[in-house]
Write a protein that binds this DNA or RNA. Structure first.
Lengths: 596, 596
DNA sequence: TTGTGGGCGAGGGGCCGACAA
DNA sequence: TTGTCGGCCCCTCGCCCACAA
């Protein structure tokens, strides 16, 4: 039915952390993890397994098929994995064979997070020299200016043409003609990434990675926060994408998870869908990886490191931490589950606030001095060896793989021989992480039930495209503003300040007659209550008032962005219709934190 | 579930001919007519009743509910009618009570067919004086210029703002700001109509009536004519609208017809959907109307008149004809059916080529001299009184309502006392029809099985929106061309001539880098075989070649129009996506007839 | 080396009156 | 009375460089 997409490009889009188990390999399937995965965008694990107490927490399976897919609208990559439970576990101890494409050195690729200038409508794309040198065909530098056309293939196999020119003072590589069309078509924004990539065939490929959007918009049940969305649903103008467990779609997906888990528990073949960009841990884990992790005698105070994607998703960074407790994540429903068995304390807690519990196979134990924040006067913790419930009979006797604890495994590049000393005792080691993860907000690991988030601060990004005229015949240009304000809570609370970030000085919205608005939650936000917006018309009025206009603006197209990073369109007269025309862009950023 | 829309505006959109039976009234339900209705756009009655020989040709029902609806995308009005078979027929003879809204004088409304200038992107709307005077709020003519804002409500209840100005020399009423947005949003084209209307509440309403599109695009089975359409279906990007019996949708609808007919035959309540703009006769006809029509002793040579909508759907015109045979339309399956019982010869056959058979209740007998083309030497026809099959026992004994034959009923306005003289003997009466129906191609009555249409000539309207640059720094503007060509049959046959109808002389497509194409069949066309277009890419190449470009053009958005008048979007890189940006319009009209 | 912003020309959107049908 | 066209303003797109980080 569905055609598997190019594995090379798929992996380039998925990111360096993503390992899809190869066909015929053995994996453990975790219903808990599956449930987290589909409900990740609602920040609450909604799958209810209470009626199915007989489902074990992990089920050994053999991978029967892997299909690489991508959402036709968002280009979000995902995979369908066919699984058949392996109740015998006969080949459990055999060495796993990794997929060739995964193991071998990946072809040269380069990811760049789009700057404002890259994502601007009027602009081109500033090509990093490394990308131009290693991925693009070599320019004829004798020409003046050196210029060529580049044809790049996207995940769907469609080709895009770009004019690649080397010009400016100082000289730099740029993509001009064609770039704007790509940005517009893919609905890219500053902060999204593109991946340039040269396939083994020599073809140049271009992939898209969306900014992570946390769980802002989909976090509320029933879409009750957005009356015009429900209206549109009634009208049939909105098709819920089931690929990413949002809103009503998640109910369907919840049911699919239960069905998959039941099939798995009953030894029947089943299929799962995995979204690598979903920021939840893989729920089909290579069996050997799990086994080795469970051979470790985890105990409180144990030091470990864990890999995360860098902010631009192109590399891996390692974070250090200590085990603060060894205890099943859900003692009621899954008392025997190793899933998120470890409660952890990070050396840099501010960056990993959302990561409270991890599964053992995601961390690597590290020998060395325990972190200082574990009081040396505390009594040594008893090693809470796991019981061996029926599910665990498959595990062989614990076997210590001592090489995991050798110093050379500590950091990706073993240049530092102080690595065993906890960060807090060194002081200087922070820079390594600060550099690459100054604003770490897309860990691969977001607890699905992270309802205990810090506060109710809300951040809301409005990207408003509009036509505007300027009085007094003053010549005006497209303008971009960053608008910081409190969340829209009540009409009285709507206040804001404008912070000009644009190149154009003259700007007057009073004669605006139509505009286009994108709305998306920023990853800072947790709960955006849009119910106060009321009808779409009321929303338009508010936008008008925000700009100090006497009359409401006439909004012609509104895009709202859910947790998937996909923009869904709304229009004034036909909510959520696909109609979009005469786009002129204005970006508005409201952030209560900055406003305070 | 579904909310019934404003009945006033609904009827204004549906047209003056449309009478929806009121709740609790008695109607005859005709399965034959229902089948024609859903398969009207495929020009072949596809519903197969062969396996259900027990279904009578007409079934007396009581109307239990009427829901006025409109397609959210096309604004096409339709109605859901709940019916319950009335096997007793006890109240059959009682006087029918018409729906108040239908009977009483409808509120003031005005329909205008959009001119090229009205539909142009850059232009406004030229308001006929009558419309401005009777429907719009009165302007303050002391102002210079007189100007006001008009808020109009569409069928969905959404409001549209228009700037209404009275200016120019000579002075005329225009809609400017807001009009373009409306045209674009509703995807209106020259030939479509808008209906302005003042509701009893005083609200100004605006409705849309699409041009009729005959059966061009949907006439071929299985969508095999359009490979990229099937691809898109696979991708799930296209939702088949079941409201209008096209393509694959018609199979579903065919099944619904059979189910409805079976329920009707078994006395169970059922529901039908009626599309007034579908150009097929009503298949739920007021019982009294049918009864009265069947009381007439129809015979060959009988003179009659029949009402049709005028081309602009705002008024009624009457056509004269003679009965050429009284014979069931389908002697095999429905030998006892009065549906399309009369084979007719029109006094103006060239305008009603497609109307070969009509049902008795749609015509009014007219006493007078028979048309000359019936030879006076033919023997007088036997009156083929219908048998009285079981279904007809409900009919009371024939009763002649003589007043139908009184001269005052002959024409809508009884100003002419030569009315009983056949047209052919008068010579001057043609003007009445010529004036209002110069190109009569949307009769309410198109035989569903009109496969015997004249020829294979094809007309295809390409409306291409594109960006184009002009060489030599020559300033260029939006251009409009009418491009007449043969249908795209093979690559070799693609030839055309450009006929400039635009105001702009400079035009050069060589630097075009993207464009947007609408495709729709014109009502002239019958069978458009697009299978030769092959893939979408191939189509783009052909468009490029048509313009004499060395390389194919880069199409960014293609809309194709099916028989419903609804435009569905296609894009180059993401077929059928909703993405549409930076639209600049170029219209191209290919017509093999004109080309010859 | 690369992000940002201004300059600026091309050209499309859209409002206008002229003019003719 | 109203359909169409040219005039023309002005805004947006998008390519360019300068400059600075």
């Amino acid at each position: 039915m569905e055609k598997s997409l190019d594995s090379e490009l798929w992996h380039a889009c998925a990111g360096v952390m993503v390992k899809i188990p190869p066909v015929n390999s053995k994996v453990f399937y975790f219903p808990q993890g599956h449930a987290e995965h589909v409900s990740s965008s609602s920040s609450v694990a909604t799958v209810d397994f209470r009626h199915f107490p007989r489902i074990p927490p992990l089920i050994l399976c053999q991978v029967t098929s892997v299909t690489y897919l991508a959402d036709p609208k968002t280009d979000e990559v995902y995979a369908k994995i066919g699984l058949i439970p392996d109740s015998l576990g006969t080949v459990f101890d055999q060495e796993e064979v990794f997929d060739g494409n995964v193991k071998q050195e990946p072809p040269v690729s380069f990811a760049k997070t789009l700057t404002q200038s890259d994502a601007n409508n009027g602009g081109g794309f500033s090509v990093p020299r490394y990308c131009a040198d290693t991925i693009f065909p070599r320019l004829d530098y004798t020409a003046d200016p050196p210029v060529q056309n580049i044809v790049a293939r996207d995940i769907h196999g469609e080709t895009w043409k770009f004019r690649h020119i080397y010009r400016g003072t100082p000289r730099r590589h740029l993509l001009t003609t064609g770039w704007s069309a790509f940005v517009n078509h893919k609905r890219l924004m500053a902060g999204d990434s593109v991946v340039f990539f040269r396939a083994v065939s020599g073809d140049i490929c271009i992939g898209v990675r969306r900014m992570k959007h946390s769980s802002g918009w989909s976090g509320l049940p029933d879409y009750s926060f957005c009356s015009f969305m429900r209206e549109a649903e009634k009208e049939g103008n909105v098709v819920m994408i089931s690929s990413n467990g949002n809103g009503n779609g998640s109910r369907v997906n919840d049911e699919l998870v239960v069905q998959a888990a039941i099939k798995a528990a009953n030894g029947k073949a089943f299929e799962v869908v995995y979204h690598p960009r979903n920021s939840t841990p893989e729920f089909c884990v290579m069996a050997g990886t799990v086994r080795r992790a469970m051979e470790v005698q985890w105990c409180r105070g144990m030091r470990f490191k864990m890999a995360f994607e860098t902010e631009d998703s192109s590399r891996i960074s390692w974070f250090m931490g200590s085990v603060s407790a060894v205890q099943p994540a859900d003692t009621i429903r899954w008392p025997d589950s190793p899933w998120r068995l470890l409660e952890v304390a990070w050396d840099e807690p501010e960056m990993l606030q959302n990561v409270k519990r991890v599964s053992p196979w995601l961390v690597e134990p590290v020998s060395g001095i325990p972190a200082l924040n574990f009081s040396p006067f505390s009594p040594p913790f008893k090693s809470p060896r796991l019981l061996q419930p029926p599910d665990y009979t498959q595990f062989p006797a614990p076997r210590f793989s001592s090489n995991l604890f050798e110093p050379r495994n500590f950091l990706p590049e073993n240049r530092d021989n102080n690595i065993n000393v906890p960060d807090c005792m060194q002081g200087a080691r922070h820079t390594q992480f600060d550099l690459s993860l100054t604003r770490f907000n897309n860990p691969k690991f977001i607890p699905a039930a992270a309802t205990d988030t810090n506060d109710n601060d809300v951040s809301c990004l409005l990207t408003m495209d509009l036509n505007h005229s300027v009085k007094n015949n003053e010549r005006s240009k497209t303008s971009q503003f960053i608008l910081f304000g409190r969340p829209i809570l009540t009409e009285q609370e709507i206040s804001l300040r404008l912070e000009k970030t644009s190149k154009y000085s003259s700007f007057n919205l009073e004669t605006t007659n139509h505009c286009k608005v994108y709305i998306e939650s920023e990853d800072v936000g947790r709960t955006i209550d849009l119910s106060v917006l009321g009808s779409y018309n009321a929303f338009c009025e508010k936008i008008g008032k925000m700009f100090g206009l006497v009359n409401s603006v006439m909004l012609h197209n509104v895009m709202y962005c859910d947790g998937t990073g996909e923009f869904r369109p709304v229009t004034y007269h036909e909510p959520f219709s696909e109609f979009a025309r005469t786009a002129r862009r204005l970006k508005i950023h409201m952030d209560s934190k900055t406003f305070k």
